[in-house]
Design a protein around this nucleic acid. Sequence first.
DNA 1: GAGATAATCGGAGGTGCCTCCGTTTCTCCA
DNA 2: TGGAGAAACGGAGGCACCTCCGATTATCTC
Lengths: 207, 207
Amino acid sequence: MHHKELPELKEAKPSAPAKRLRADASRNREKLIGIAAIEFAERGGSASLEEIARKAGVGIGTLYRHFPTREHLVEVVYRREVEALCDAAVELARNNAPDVALAEWMQRFVDYIAAKRGMANSLRILFDTNSEVFANTSGMIGSALQRLVDAAVADGSVRSDIDISDISQALSGIYSAPDTPDWRDRSRRLVSLLMDGLRWGSARSRR
Amino acid sequence: MHHKELPELKEAKPSAPAKRLRADASRNREKLIGIAAIEFAERGGSASLEEIARKAGVGIGTLYRHFPTREHLVEVVYRREVEALCDAAVELARNNAPDVALAEWMQRFVDYIAAKRGMANSLRILFDTNSEVFANTSGMIGSALQRLVDAAVADGSVRSDIDISDISQALSGIYSAPDTPDWRDRSRRLVSLLMDGLRWGSARSRR
DNA sequence: GAGATAATCGGAGGTGCCTCCGTTTCTCCA
DNA sequence: TGGAGAAACGGAGGCACCTCCGATTATCTC
């Protein structure tokens, strides 16, 4: 199936909204994104767009005007979730000890990945079409992780001889692991194991 | 979109037909394959299965009974065409000078690839599901090429210091070249250039 | 506040996918 | 040759995709 050309994704500039949406339009748009996030998480890429429109209480035409293709919608949902994940890093850092924040954030990362597994196919098409999106998002995730680790190292609750890229590698291993039923549990255990490793030999640790 | 599990491709063993088809069934099956080959070539992966059934003069139910998914149908068409290509090698070798046979066969290879370009997506899904198909077919193509080259070398119309893998590489370059409008012409020129290179310095060549 | 008007809404409709099952056809055996 | 029964047919029906355009608002101007 030829990839249809996507007609130029807009919405790129966060600060230069090409045009202000009318109040009802922007309300509907948000509603759609919210419902879509839920549906994609539950049903994966086979979520029905008509179902999403129905649950959002708008006509199918409205959905298509806002998001001309399935991939447009996937992209926006994807972006939103990356942002939420990164915002969570700030929030966690503010309210927890650095090592706890790091541990908790990595657990959330697992959940986030879990939600993405269903929509692998749409994400691949999106990637073929517009790989710049991924450069952005993986950058954001990288810096969030960096900040958390730096804080934990500075605080002495995590050993100082580790590198972000090691952690990234471990986390990306989670992403590419096969999709077994116990995938999620296994991933969570792996993250806490990783965290123990990071704490071992830190200034604070008893040994 | 989750890849649906394909329910075990049968038809693998060429010599052990699980069950003889009823006469009408096998007639319809052939008709479907023939029409499908044309439609896939013309419309690529977006060819409509209902259209194929209609043109073949059977109901959509019949198409689905023979080929439970689009990929099943794609696979059979694909296999047929590889076989036709390899049979052509034998035929060409019988009726032409070895170097001419080789040249002509490579040109046909280009045409064959051209036909595949439209259905890239279905082929990828097929590959994910059942990569063994590709091992078979690329093996067949390899040996066809090998025989043609051997004959031409033995005959002295082509230089003897070349390797199949060099030629394969050049041909696979054709496959992965971008899909521009003049793709086909360019590929044909490339093949004839390659052929000149092969002839240069052969025993026969005036050098 | 009322009207103009441009932006937005929403669903009917045409097409394709796929399943299910009553009907038709072939094949085999007596 | 003439059924009986298995095998195959084929299309109706349910759902989803996507487009198109008349009806419906939100917003702006006076």
